[in-house]
Design a protein around this nucleic acid. Structure first.
Lengths: 224, 224, 224, 224
DNA sequence: AATGAATGAGACTTCATTCAT
DNA sequence: CATGAATGAAGTCTCATTCAT
């Protein structure tokens, strides 16, 4: 399968400035890297698998990236950045109520653009290395922490509004984070059996349990 | 295929003396493999890193295991089996009430023997490859499904006892699984910041929310 | 082949304006090559190190020189020509007595312009390749032989003048050549410890020994 | 041309202890490296040229040497060591008089075992890199300095014995070193035209000039 | 059983050269 | 003339696997 067939782009960059073309090539290589990792894993991803997918010559990667290691790190950063923009965009588009915003974050987490099997495979490939590679861990935790902060603040607002007792905002936010990651893994491990929709239902169920006056049980609520 | 056949419990012992030594060597190599993966990841683990740690010669691995791939698979099976035995032992040692049994499963999940940083690193290394390697995925999902079945049954009993409305056993069991995996990842990603104890609190909090007449909020309950 | 043909003295100038700019670029690249070789050696010298130093684009080298090999050969020729002009100029500037001319040749050999560490490094880089690369060897030996001829003739005149017995002109000239090369290597190998001045003293000492009625021992003679 | 044909050894090591066999392999690879450098230069010497000559597999070099760089350094050390042993052996075998010892050092310098075109090519390849590679320079200068010390001491004894005026031991020793290196280069650059014998004559001529009461002019003396 | 030297495929990387702009 | 992105051959090094001892 070629890069072009995967992402549906024209191979030849149209007329554009040189630095724009350079960025396009970098993007093309990073996309190919994501495809390759999802198919062969990180250790199975070689300069050759990447450039084959991108339909570029093998020497080009080291022209655009200092090393394979740098390519992988850029790939993770790109993935993280895309993720971050997804939930921030969802947040902006959502209504003003904190429960709507919180729901938007959840939706973003399981949005098809973010939560495809292909990308989940890549995420967990990086998680697998993050244990002993601080640079990966930092990229991952930085983005997660930011979202957790926002979620926590939203939970605090909901708790105040609803007079919930025995509920602590940070706990809920952390549990949500846990559910996000746990369900991502389940989607990856049970392809076709446990889906994005299942994950959304489960998370909504948890929110309904926690904040009964703000969320209804998924059975009767809208699902995406 | 049964669990037993997967993890080789029924493997026929050969002449005992020879086999015992053989098994000891295998165990030694598998332990070294776990150490190596936790330190260098799967792709950084070579026959040499394993045999260095085991203080054995490099030629020996291919004597005891058909290939590196076989060694890795055996390692994962060993890890899975140890995990399985941990929660089944906890179950046996717990009281008779279903909520006590459920709590025992949770405790097992975050038991230091199972949930050390070292072993979590190994688990997620395998998860990272599981996406595109069915053999790993099968080992992982078989053991998880068994536990999920048991948890689900326990939840059903608790729901019946407590007359909980709007609570579905399979949902709860799946959410627990999600929390397990999610918190494992958090423990791995935030060393020192998010601990086994935090995870246990969070899970208990979730159980108290779900089954308020069976579980108390962690703030006032015993923690281990 | 004549010297002129080797170093390209007779190269026909093209339309002057274009050719002048062209020659300037060539000179710029050759100077950068010398700098690069002195810093990284021949094998560490790449088109990129050269063009970086010259602050020119990498594509330009192949415009001005057929290949990297051609650039290196031109560099050596340039170096050889500079060397040749140095001792010939010294010769013209010296008095008429043969011993003064001989002394001028020696001075030229260790003149700062010729005998800088940077240039010595380049010379010995080429010597290192000359063993198995006839084209380099020819460039080097042609220029040396010319100087040896002149030195020999001067020695002959000195011997006749001084009635030296047991002294053979060609021997002395060859020994001088040997000392030149040997001291060059010593200057390169013992930076700061063995200097151009030391070399000059040593050579003058040898000449005083050989031609006591024409040269005084360096201790009492003028040094440069 | 194969290693075996060059050095005339049997390919298969005979029965010997493992560490002895290991040393033999290292020696074999170093010999092959010398052959390769003399034929292709240092930059033209690859792991493949070395292992082709040694008739071993390409992977073996990195088993016996940490890197190509380490192989080259070991090769230079071996060469230097051989050189050192040659002149020390000559010294031991020579008569007791200091002039005989000095002559022995000279003989060693131009001994066929040391001063073959093949080895000179290797020496000057290393000299070419020594300018910017301190590790090479150290190996070379350490061995040279030791010999220079001995030569200087011998000169001092000769000067005392012969009551030479205006002669300084260190000067003479340094000039000898210069002649050694310079004539080595001449032998390399003028194959067939300037030979080891010519070099010996020249050096003896210099010694006769310097110490006329201890050395006769080469025309009438024994040559080797 | 155990050792570790040896093999060779394959990975990453460098770099001279080409060529569209 | 000049640029620098692109190519691909070739180099170094790693490593699973084999096998004689």
């Amino acid at each position: 399968m070629t890069y072009a067939s995967i992402v549906g782009e024209n191979e030849k960059p149209l007329k554009q400035s040189r630095s724009a073309a350079k960025q396009a090539r970098r993007k093309q290589l990073i996309d190919a890297t994501i495809s390759s990792i999802s198919k062969h894993g990180i250790s199975g991803t070689t300069m050759a698998t990447v450039t084959d997918i991108a339909r570029l010559s093998i020497g080009l990667v080291n022209f655009h990236f200092k090393s394979k290691e740098a390519l992988l790190e850029e790939t993770l950063k790109t993935l993280a950045q895309e993720h971050r923009e997804q939930w921030r965009k969802s947040l902006r588009n959502s209504g003003l109520a904190p429960e709507e915003k919180l729901r938007a974050i959840v939706q973003a987490q399981f949005h098809p653009q973010i939560c495809s099997r292909k990308k989940l495979a890549v995420w967990f490939s990086f998680f697998g290395e993050a244990a002993y590679r601080g640079s990966y861990r930092k990229i991952v935790t930085d983005i997660d922490r930011e979202r957790w902060d926002v979620s926590g603040e939203l939970c605090r607002q909901i708790i105040n509004e609803g007079d919930y007792e025995n509920v602590e905002a940070d706990y809920v936010a952390k549990s949500l984070e846990g559910l996000f990651d746990g369900f991502w893994l389940n989607i990856l491990m049970y392809p076709g059996k446990f889906t994005r929709t299942d994950a959304l239902d489960q998370v909504h169920n948890f929110m309904a349990l926690t904040f009964p006056r703000h969320f209804k049980h998924p059975k009767t609520s809208d699902r995406t």
